[in-house]
């Protein structure tokens, strides 16, 4: 597998940073190389938040800010334009239809589009802040980027000791995301 770059973009409170970390941890569980670079504003909720996760079999060449994306996870439309411009012509575009108006988001013909109500599903499983985890679960299930079991293990590795109460609902969000594309 060559380098697979996943760009996540959303706003604070959607679980973007946690989902990116869970994905990175899952890649380690799978024995792969991984790189993770985050950028986010000062606000806890509502500010822009982006993350780049690169997964590969070999040591990673890509710099922290990648030029091209294998997949873009648009969890919120506010800052979608920049990552979208980096999406490869044959890449994967996952849009969170709970908050993204998909008709307004254009993509090249070769792009695989996954339009999923991630935030709604997250709310339904009892973890409204896990929209990005739903998206990551769906991405893993539809592409095999990482094993689903590894993603679930990733939750355990990524959540700090004072957030253990969210392990179960985070795993539920990942499973619900996987079921959306089953």
């Amino acid at each position: 597998m060559s380098e697979r770059e996943v760009l996540l973009t959303g706003i604070g409170g959607q679980g973007v940073q946690l989902a990116a970390r869970v994905l990175a941890e899952a890649a380690i569980v799978d024995g792969k190389e991984v790189q993770f670079f985050a950028s986010y504003g000062g606000m806890m909720r509502g500010g822009n938040t982006d993350a780049t996760v690169v997964v590969a079999d070999e040591p990673i060449d890509a710099p922290p800010v990648v030029a091209k994306a294998w997949a873009v996870l648009g969890i919120h439309p506010a800052h979608l334009a920049d990552p979208l411009a980096r999406l490869r012509g044959d890449g994967i575009l996952l849009l969170n239809t709970s908050v993204v108006e998909v008709d307004g988001v254009e993509s090249p013909d070769g792009v695989t589009r996954l339009e999923l109500a991630c935030s709604t599903v997250a709310h339904d499983v009892g973890n409204p802040m896990a929209g990005a985890l739903v998206a990551v679960g769906a991405l893993a299930a539809s592409t095999g980027l990482v094993e689903l079991a590894s993603l679930e293990a990733g939750v355990d590795r990524a959540l700090p000791s004072y957030r253990r109460q969210h392990v179960e609902s985070s795993v539920a969000a990942i499973r619900a995301g996987a079921e959306l594309v089953a």
Partner: peptide, 9 residues
Amino acid sequence: YYLGHTSQA
């Protein structure tokens, strides 16, 4: 900054 804030395995 990039070195300090990038995570790797």
